[in-house]
Design a protein around this nucleic acid. Sequence first.
DNA 1: AGCACTACTGTTATAATATTGCGAAAGGTA
DNA 2: TACCTTTCGCAATATTATAACAGTAGTGCT
Lengths: 160, 160
Amino acid sequence: MDEESLQNALKTAEILCAQRGVRFTAQRRRVLELVCRAERPVGAYEILDQLREGATAAPPTVYRALDFLLEQGFVHKLETLHAFIGCTHPEHPHASQFLICSDCGRVKELENEAIAGSLRTAAQETGFKAERPIIEVLGTCAHCRRKTEQAGTSPRVPLE
Amino acid sequence: MDEESLQNALKTAEILCAQRGVRFTAQRRRVLELVCRAERPVGAYEILDQLREGATAAPPTVYRALDFLLEQGFVHKLETLHAFIGCTHPEHPHASQFLICSDCGRVKELENEAIAGSLRTAAQETGFKAERPIIEVLGTCAHCRRKTEQAGTSPRVPLE
DNA sequence: AGCACTACTGTTATAATATTGCGAAAGGTA
DNA sequence: TACCTTTCGCAATATTATAACAGTAGTGCT
């Protein structure tokens, strides 16, 4: 996330917290900032390491902040990676889908109504009440595919 | 899984392993049996506890067997639960979706082409090559909803 | 300001999940 | 049999997450 989006995300979080009557403490702001600043999903202990620079911190510190941010919808948890990522549209609740590149590690968040809809429909057919749909697709992003396929046209490793 | 489905699952696994030229060892068979016998998803350490009855076993024993069974498509891993479940149709590779009841813990495996399709389409639009789609929906199953809603018509806890 | 209340934080310990590395055993093949 | 590959046993350790409890700080009230 670039500096501008980051500032925007922090500001948005601040406003939403005020509206919702919950506290956007320094600790929580700091963790949100660290998650958003990262190019890729970050693990709880990575965040912890950064928190420890200059201060003392233990796992519950991070997990509590993350729990809060998750509840408020400011970050998402990627279950397949045990890692966290800043939400790209925190203003409204939403069902998202994540495209996770196994090559570069970057993640794209989708908000695709066709997917969400077909899932709702399928669940309803069985009488199931969907509350938290988790959709994470592991694969290869466009950028990394180009890289790999170019390399693939000539042998990746010189023949011996 | 009832006894008949279990025997069927084991037989199917055996045949598929023979066809694929991989070994269906006693260890692997035993772990598959334990996973399939369970009514709900089971954690690796639950399996381990059962393996230890009468023998000695350590975590790698279970995880190695599970890795094999996952590769062969005989079991699925539920990422949101850190638990494993027997596959209901191991004969062909497939993208499944799981409806996980937070109340009773039971899981229904779907194989819904509309969901899989819309996901493929959405991924393709961004040039992403989907390799392993993970779809797990937490919610409440039909059975548990009925229970809860009935209870809800009259107060669940007697008034004081 | 003083007080009570609640929400948040710090700290220690520990639980739960998963992997690494190494050497021994078992199965398959010439 | 000798050889090779795969699987297994075992000890240690890494990684992710939570519990329990005491202290602190913000919030609302008088």
